[in-house]
Write a protein that binds this DNA or RNA. Structure first.
Lengths: 153, 153
DNA sequence: GCAAATTCATTCGTATGCAAATGATATCAA
DNA sequence: TTGATATCATTTGCATACGAATGAATTTGC
């Protein structure tokens, strides 16, 4: 691979190196950027909660009290990650913890009244965030995208 | 009430029945899961490098020596993040740093011979990773998905 | 009924990822 | 020229994210 070849290709307007590896075309790299953009949009609408924290509250609102471990499974977080998220929500008074009466291994998590108020107030904003994230696509494209994305996830 | 119906309503901007908010239908949540899956696939093929580290090496291989800041822009990392990534690559002898002769603010980053050997050895694996990540989709679906994902990122 | 395997939670270590503040240098504009 | 701005890099603090190790409790298999 000589610089002379690259110069020639440049002058002739050809693609440099057909076998070249282009990071910006790789699904992983674009996926990472799309996720970054979504997180930024999320933060611009909901400043006092992160997406994982929101996910935990939303899921608790949906299903009610559950164990920390089960919650982690439902929101796709491993045990170490979910513990940190729940710890921070607990410190802010949005969730409360209790011990499972029968299975002493389990730590039950539930919304506090403040947590319930917060998530119900924020859900409309979450719909806005979804809309803004998908805004570069037409409605039809968005439907296609979500269908294919779900197949990948 | 199927998830598909909810997806359709979301895309069309209609309200789903009740106040039902389904986390698992939100683009941000699925995006996060798809990204997680990709990172896991990456790690199963390339154990000794993270995707951000790989991105830094691949971009340096593509464009040659550049400033730390410019590299960060090209691989979508802020200054604080790229510094950590480069520090770790430097500690492993895969990149080397030097000062810009004219602009004394800039820190130039370049591949070492070891870094070049590493990235050239790993690029074929990266193609495999991309294939495996997209495996749940047909070739046509994958092309559509990448086109729409790029519009979002 | 009991040993092995599994599950749940915690802790530690490492690695992104980003906001905000800081210092050094470079560029712009009056 | 110089004062205001902008850029580059670093540092600190906080929040995911996950592998690996550990301990406690439960379930399984025989």
């Amino acid at each position: 691979m000589s610089g002379e070849d690259n110069l020639l290709r440049l002058v002739e307007g050809e693609e440099p190196d057909e076998n070249g590896y282009h990071l910006q075309d790789q699904v992983g790299f674009i996926l990472r950027k799309a996720h970054q953009r979504h997180v930024a949009i999320f933060a611009s609408h909901i400043a006092d909660l992160t997406p994982p924290q929101f996910a935990a509250l939303a899921k608790l609102h949906d299903i009610g009290e559950t164990s920390q471990n089960q919650l982690g499974t439902l929101i796709a977080m491993d045990a170490a990650t979910v513990k940190g998220v729940i710890d921070r929500l607990k410190a802010r008074g949005l969730v409360e913890l209790s011990k499972h009466e029968v299975d002493k291994r389990r730590l039950l998590v539930n919304l506090t009244p403040e947590g319930r108020e917060a998530i119900e107030r924020l859900i409309p904003l979450a719909r806005t965030i979804t809309e803004e994230t998908l805004a570069p696509l037409t409605a039809k494209e968005a439907a296609t995208f979500l269908r294919l994305l779900a197949k990948l996830a």
